[in-house]
C-alpha cells in the first residue's frame, strides 16, 4: 500500500511540475503567438487589398488595419447569418465554408470591398484562402486571393499552392466568371493555353493550374471551392 502511495505521489509531483512549467511558458508565448497569428492575417489582408491589375492599394494605406482593434472596426456580420461556431456560412453548391468574421472596407469612390476566409478540404486537411471581392458597376468581382493554410498538403505537389505564381492564376475574376462558378481546368475538362487562360477565367471562371501544379488537383480544387463558398455567401447576403 505504501509503495503504491509513493509511486502515485511521485507521478503526481512530476505532472504538477510539468503543468507549472508549461503554464509559465504559455504565459510567456501567449502574446507572441497572438501577434504571429494576427501578423499573418494582417499581411494577407494587405495583399488581397492590393489591386491585382495596377499593384496599388484599393484603399488608402492609412486605412489598412495594423492592429487587432483596428481590424475589429472592419468586421462585417450581415443579418441572418449565425457565426457562433466560427463559421458564418456553409456553401450548398460546393464543399466550402466561410470563416467568421468577414470584413468590409469602403473605397474612396464609395464602392465596397468584402474580405473573407474560405475553407475547403484539400488532400490532407483544410485549405484556407482569403479573398477580396470588389463591388463595381459591372457587379462584384474577385480582386485577389491569398492561401493562408495549406500545411497538410504534400510538399512539392499540393503545397505548391503557396507559390505566388500559382495563386495569381486564380485572380482577378470578373462577375461573369464568378456567376458560372470557379473551377480548375481539369474539372472543367479543358486545357486553355496562351491568351485563352485569361479569357476562360474571366468568361467562364475556369482557372488554369494544370501546367503550374502538375500532379496536384485536389489542393487547387479546394481553393476554387473556398472562393465559390465566399461568392455564394455574398450572394445570400445580398451583395452579389
Amino acid at each position: 500500500m505504501r509503495e503504491y502511495l509513493k509511486t502515485g505521489i511521485t507521478l503526481m509531483v512530476i505532472t504538477i511540475i510539468a503543468a507549472l512549467v508549461l503554464s509559465v511558458v504559455y504565459t510567456v508565448v501567449k502574446e507572441p503567438i497572438a501577434n504571429a497569428e494576427l501578423g499573418a492575417k494582417l499581411k494577407a489582408i494587405r495583399e488581397v487589398l492590393t489591386d491585382a491589375e495596377t499593384g496599388e492599394l484599393l484603399i488608402a494605406a492609412e486605412n489598412i488595419p495594423e492592429t487587432a482593434s483596428e481590424l475589429a472596426e472592419f468586421e462585417w456580420f450581415p443579418a441572418g447569418f449565425d457565426s457562433s461556431e466560427g463559421i458564418i456560412y456553409t456553401a450548398t453548391s460546393s464543399q466550402g465554408k466561410v470563416e467568421s468574421p468577414a470584413y468590409k472596407f469602403v473605397k474612396e469612390d464609395g464602392s465596397e470591398i468584402y474580405v473573407a476566409i474560405g475553407i475547403a478540404v484539400g488532400y490532407g486537411g483544410d485549405v484556407k484562402s482569403m479573398a477580396a471581392f470588389v463591388s463595381g458597376p459591372n457587379g462584384v468581382s474577385l480582386n485577389a486571393i491569398k492561401v493562408l493554410e495549406y500545411s497538410q498538403e504534400t510538399p512539392g505537389l499540393g503545397a505548391n499552392i503557396a507559390n505566388a505564381a500559382v495563386q495569381q492564376r486564380f485572380f482577378p475574376i470578373a462577375s461573369k466568371g464568378l456567376d458560372k462558378g470557379v473551377r480548375v481546368d481539369k474539372d472543367a475538362g479543358v486545357t486553355p493555353s496562351g491568351d485563352q487562360i485569361e479569357i476562360r477565367k474571366q468568361e467562364d471562371g475556369i482557372v488554369t493550374v494544370s501546367d503550374v501544379m502538375t500532379g496536384a488537383t485536389i489542393t487547387p480544387r479546394a481553393v476554387a471551392f473556398s472562393l465559390n463558398a465566399i461568392s455564394e455567401f455574398l450572394e445570400k447576403a445580398g451583395v452579389r
Binding site: I14, T15, L22, V25, V29, E31, P32, I33, N35, A36
Partner: peptide, 23 residues
C-alpha cells in the same frame, strides 16, 4: 510514464515557442 510526461512537456514547450517565434 514519468519519462513520457517529461518528454511531452518539452514537446509542448517547443511547439508553443515555434508557434510564437518561427511561425
Amino acid at each position: 510514464p514519468s519519462y513520457i510526461v517529461i518528454i511531452a512537456s518539452f514537446v509542448t514547450m517547443i511547439d508553443m515557442l515555434m508557434h510564437g517565434f518561427i511561425y
